[in-house]
């Protein structure tokens, strides 16, 4: 039996919605098949007021063993570092976060807000929000650079806006069933099993990416969304086209560019007008190129690929 506590800071509840929609395994499977005991969760917990406070205090004191502490949302520091803009169970949430993290065997940050600050931490960051162990790309966050949970692992980051339901439940099962040792984390503390490959891995538009045929309108089935509509698939680490959303689709499959929401800089360019769903260019060349590709190689291979484009790639292959 592994005790799990889930709290929410500066958040929209999107990750909770995601979690409750998980299928493999489902939130119920966590309890019935994998021995996870959900001590409290904002949408599932029955306790209120003093009863809830007592659970939290018992977790901090060790009276209740806290195996997994899950946090969704940012840690709010405003105003003036006090964190009182986000009070919870009688005190600033940031204080609970510190104490519960110190008491837990594993700390798991779910979603962009909890991992690196996400949208709330976008400039000018009025709530003075940070993620648990990062603020954007900078390590530190609410718990500090050197933080390690009792298990010896730093915060396990499962980013996404929201995170895919199955990334959440599969990692929770791995941790709860004693397989955390199998998890390898990348430089941003994301489990590599999900975040080593790219959004582009498995995208149905890869042939059009290769032959440089551009999608020019949302929802268009032919073409690739990189050239015009700002798709970040070639530089974003996520398994969105391997572990499909709702088990059947993904943004790019639906004709919508990847926004790069599993990367610490999300939302990119601080959401400046003209930067969303638009490929940023300098003198006709994309400013951000597929990861690991330099500008001159890009120009060379694009020219060659374009010249080799077969006729079918220019036609709509998705006929009814």
């Amino acid at each position: 039996m592994a005790n799990l506590l889930w709290l929410q800071g500066g958040a929209c509840s999107g990750n909770t919605m995601s979690f409750l929609n998980a299928e493999e395994p489902s939130a119920c499977d966590l309890v019935t098949d994998f021995g996870i005991n959900i001590l409290w969760h904002p949408s599932l917990g029955m306790e209120l007021g003093n009863d809830l406070q007592q659970i939290l205090k018992d977790c901090v004191s060790g009276k209740i063993k806290l195996d997994i502490f899950v946090f969704e949302g940012t840690v709010v520091n405003a105003p003036d570092g006090t964190g009182t803009w986000n009070r919870f169970a009688g005190r600033p949430m940031k204080e609970w976060v510190k104490e519960l993290s110190a008491a837990a065997d594993f700390v798991v940050a779910i979603g962009d807000c909890a991992t690196w600050g996400g949208i709330p931490a976008t400039a000018p960051n009025p709530t003075d929000s940070v993620g648990l162990q990062f603020l954007k790309k900078n390590i530190g966050g609410a718990l500090g650079k050197t933080f390690k949970a009792k298990s010896g692992l730093p915060v396990i980051n499962i980013p996404g806006c929201p995170a895919h339901p199955d990334w959440v439940t599969q990692i929770l099962v791995a941790v709860a069933t004693g397989r955390a040792g199998d998890l390898t984390l990348d430089e941003y503390q994301r489990p590599k099993t999900f975040f080593q490959s790219f959004t582009q891995t498995g995208c149905t538009r890869n042939m059009h990416f290769a032959y440089k045929v551009s999608t020019t309108q949302f929802g268009q089935r032919n073409g690739c969304l990189f050239y015009d509509l700002g798709c970040r698939g070639p530089m974003t680490h996520s398994p969105c086209n391997r572990i499909l959303w709702n088990r059947q689709s993904s943004k790019t499959r639906a004709g919508m560019p990847c926004l790069g929401c599993t990367e610490p800089e999300f939302p990119f360019h601080d959401l400046m007008p003209g930067t969303v769903f638009k490929t940023q260019t300098v003198m006709g060349v994309p400013k951000e190129l597929p990861l690991g590709v330099d500008k001159s190689s890009y120009i060379k291979y694009t020219g060659a690929a374009k010249a080799a484009t077969p006729k079918w790639a220019e036609e709509d292959m998705f006929v009814v």
Binding site: T216, G303, K306, T309
Partner: peptide
């Protein structure tokens, strides 16, 4: 010929 919007086979600007 190398432009993103060009359809080589149709000889067409697809912007």
């Amino acid at each position: 010929m190398e432009c993103m919007y060009y359809l080589n086979h149709r000889k067409w600007c697809n912007l």
